[in-house]
Design a protein around this nucleic acid. Structure first.
Lengths: 130, 130
DNA sequence: GTCGTTGCAAAGCGTTTGCAGCCTA
DNA sequence: TAGGCTGCAAACGCTTTGCAACGAC
């Protein structure tokens, strides 16, 4: 998989980085596109994909995979954390802390190396509306 | 989305059900295809997809979504459980039990309705090989 | 014999890639 | 000015769908 060396600071790349700095939650390419276009009209979806990939290679973004969902991305370097997906607005939020009793679930003979925890429900905004 | 009424017991459908009864772990369409073809040569991938969908509608299968993975399917009606994915052979296994301290992770103002837990590591077979 | 089901091939859909032209350094 | 980067459109891989033939009941 090809990843650009990211050695030029284009308007498109600036816009995409800015979107993530403003959002503070994992964003999908489809969420990034219209947001980035508000800064750079005409910015194409291919540019979004290419830059997301490049920013991951660069270590500036990390990909966030949730069950049954296309990959999202968030600014890298945060502490170990998990995610909460709102079933109404489909937005994903970061949650601090981590479940501590996962090791005891591991079947005999298996070697545990990592884990994902995803919570589902309603975010603050949506739980007020319903 | 169209789902067949499932009122005929074809060789293809028998084969697919049999695969799941024998496997006892979540299977992807790509895992089902060759296995079902060993019973019914020439069975097509479209038939696999159609029957998986139909068996879910029928309540005989449930879909299992893991982060960054295409959907798998397992026989429905089991107790609440989670999954373990082997990083070497990519197979997914069911694990009993459930983490109990997830509610405390929920951010203030959010309403928790459900959760997913996925463990990663090596299965018994692969931890012996490495 | 009916009509649900199948296999094949075409169509979808989100993501990736090829390419000519653009624009940053 | 060089060559990394962009937008467009074609290509991809996986899943879904249309359709004529098949076969379970």
């Amino acid at each position: 998989m090809y990843s650009p060396p990211m050695d030029r600071n284009t308007r498109q790349r600036q816009a995409i980085r800015r979107i993530f700095e403003e959002a503070d939650r994992p964003l999908s390419p489809q969420e990034v596109l219209p947001a980035a276009q508000s800064y750079v009209p005409g910015l194409g979806i291919a540019t979004v994909y290419r830059n997301l990939k490049a920013l991951v290679t660069d270590g500036w973004l990390e990909s966030v995979a949730l069950p049954g969902e296309p990959p999202r991305y968030e600014v890298a370097g945060k502490r170990h954390h998990h995610h909460f997906r709102c079933r109404t607005c489909d937005r994903v939020f970061e949650i601090d802390g981590c479940s501590t009793n996962l090791a005891q679930l591991t079947p005999r003979g298996f070697r545990l190396e990592g884990h994902d925890v995803v919570l589902y429900g309603l975010c603050t905004a949506c739980s007020k509306i319903v």
